[in-house]
Nucleic acid binder design. Structure first.
Lengths: 358, 358
DNA sequence: TGCTTCTCTGCAATCGATTGCGAGAACGGA
DNA sequence: TCCGTTCTCGCAATCGATTGCAGAGAAGCA
């Protein structure tokens, strides 16, 4: 008697048509606001009533097959669980949902060979567009989208030749804010804990850091910089050790990312350096909970949710308006001053090192 | 000359058939491992060669329409950006991807009216199954899935009548571990900072807390408990204030969630109570970075990624094996002892309060 | 050789919605 | 009354892959 398995059979257009006493094509037109004017109001009412009574829901697979538009957006992210990417997804999903689009997420991981494979899989699903949150500076998926004329928007990273629209945080401004803040506090010897060169933010923030120091006329010889192999605490700590070894005179570190900054915290603790007494540290991103660490991290805040929303906006414009001119949306970050930065103490670093060694 | 808009037209089955000199149905059979045996190897090779040469990718929309299986899984989560749900998604996505399934995420937010609406939208996409990460104890979507015979798996919460498979952490065990640890340290007056009663984890952890105290034969009168209105720091702080006001004698707090625990940190700081000297605090979940706060939080670790993976497993079994017996997978949490718990100091709370007030 | 049984492949229907085209009704003007 | 428009609506093709059915040919058997 009861169905053992398999869903309840859904109501189809044809059944609504039968119930309303009209042809399926009429139902289709009556239900679509764009074509509703082709049907007399009386019939529209009858169709709507029948559709409601039966609880009709159009089969989006069938509609997608016919129209070529699936109303699905593919999102390629390196890691869904990353606190940078998940708010981006959330913001984009929010914006897209209000226009009837859904997001299919593909966690591409770090293996670049998988990128194209997963992109192809999404194309096989006939997704209408891509949100590319992948991070590497030269990404084959970008060319892939260009070749196939697939609508796409980059987030967190712009395409150097500006062939694809992008939404990014102003990394140069972010670094400028960080450096300005430290210079104002009196720091003159500032080091940079960079992200990987192959990742766009790693590259751009490093450049931003140099440019920012330039503005203050600080001497080129005092720009120590070490790049971490990955954006995590362990690699941040390793790079921080190299940085402090290579440039023991620095009184402040600007990190390319909060996790790197926390790696620097670990190293400071190792070496008996107090933060911010002996060493000021600035992060980037304002991840959740960095206001709770000891000391609370001064960092550059980026609204990732906003980035996601803006990316969705750009994509929708491409999809609906046919707006095809590529453009970059640059969102301004803000410096959040907390407890990890303070004026430098003269000689304090040395004193502490001795105390730590004793 | 160049296409102004619209994607490059994709290769279809028919084109492959033409190139291989066979009928489309033969191509379909040759490409599908399950039906490949119906085609002679020589033809299979020819078809595969043609498909590869043309770069053929089957249109999953068309296949889904015909077969009724979209190979899409819908995930309903309250907040994609939440550090609890994003690893669940990540784990599930990982597991599903290896079987050719993709995840469509729907951020349902807190508005329960939207739940059914979004669920319906996903059904219209002909998703093959649901992963329900929604949190409220009575969720209309559960009945919806049952009514429509839609395969579904709950995560982080079981269905009381066991009508749907679920993957959960053992909340009772988690609370037992926390309480055991505190009792071992010498605490006798322990309070509970509970989650909202309407949320399943809030309810179950509270129950687990009571049961755990019972095991140690601790008197019923000493079970102070205050429930937060939501799982966040602010509400956690409010509830912690109520808890400390109502039961000033407690020397330890077991929180239902890390964020609530951090709210308790804020209140401890407000009142001049040192953690763990005057007050030990235990969290739940082991969110990223809680090892970096001051003091590092002792908490019950749940592997949310593992939960996601297990949920995907259960769902795939339902989808492919036809395994329809509902079952609950219970994952064991682990206590991670860090710096926020210590033996109670006799009278220390009082002393500190006086010092704080002075 | 004649008959059955298999094996392989092609034919055509099908999934459900959309849409170009044309038929018929309604209407206005002469 | 007749003709040309305009407005509604139905017909049927279409999107691209899957699959039940049947037919062609080969193989097996007497």
């Amino acid at each position: 008697m009861a169905k053992r398995t398999g869903q309840v059979r859904a109501i189809t257009l044809k059944q609504v048509a039968e119930a309303a006493g009209v042809h399926a094509s009429t139902v289709s037109r009556a239900l679509n606001p764009a074509t509703r004017s082709m049907v007399v109001p009386e019939v529209v009412d009858r169709v709507l009533a029948a559709a409601n009574a039966l609880g009709y829901r159009p089969n989006l697979l069938a509609a997608g097959l016919r129209t070529g538009r699936s109303h699905l957006i593919g999102a390629l992210v390196p890691d869904i669980a990353n606190t940078v990417f998940s708010p981006i997804l959330s913001g984009a999903s929010d914006r897209l949902a209000s226009d009837g689009y859904s997001i299919v997420v593909a966690d591409v991981g770090t293996n670049p060979a998988r990128h194209l494979e997963l992109a192809n899989q999404l194309v096989a699903r006939r997704i209408d567009g891509f949100i590319l949150a992948t991070v590497s500076r030269d990404d084959p998926v970008v060319d892939f989208c260009l070749d196939q004329h697939l609508p796409a928007v980059l987030v967190n990273r712009a395409e150097e030749r500006r062939r694809i629209s992008a939404v990014v945080s102003d990394d140069a401004l972010g670094m400028q804010l960080a450096v300005d803040h430290l210079v104002e506090l009196g720091h003159a010897r500032i080091g940079h804990l960079a992200g990987p060169e192959t990742i766009s933010t790693g590259f751009l923030r490093r450049k931003g850091f140099y440019d920012a120091l330039e503005v203050h006329g600080l001497p080129a010889g005092d720009y120590p910089c070490e790049a971490a192999a990955a954006y995590n605490r362990e690699e941040g700590a390793k790079a921080a050790r190299r940085l402090l070894d290579a440039a023991p005179g620095i009184t402040a570190i600007v990190a390319a990312n909060d996790l790197l900054a926390l790696g620097a915290y670990d190293v400071a603790a190792e070496r008996g350096l107090s933060v911010p007494g002996d060493l000021s540290i600035v992060g980037h991103n304002d991840m959740p909970l960095v206001d709770m660490v000891a000391p609370p991290l001064t960092t550059v805040r980026i609204s990732h949710r906003e980035i996601g929303r803006a990316a969705a906006d750009l994509l929708l414009q491409q999809l609906t308006g046919g707006e095809s001119s590529t453009r970059n949306v640059v969102l301004a970050p803000a410096l959040i001053v907390r407890g990890s930065t303070a004026p430098p103490r003269a000689q304090s670093r040395l004193r502490n090192q001795q105390r730590g060694a004793g």
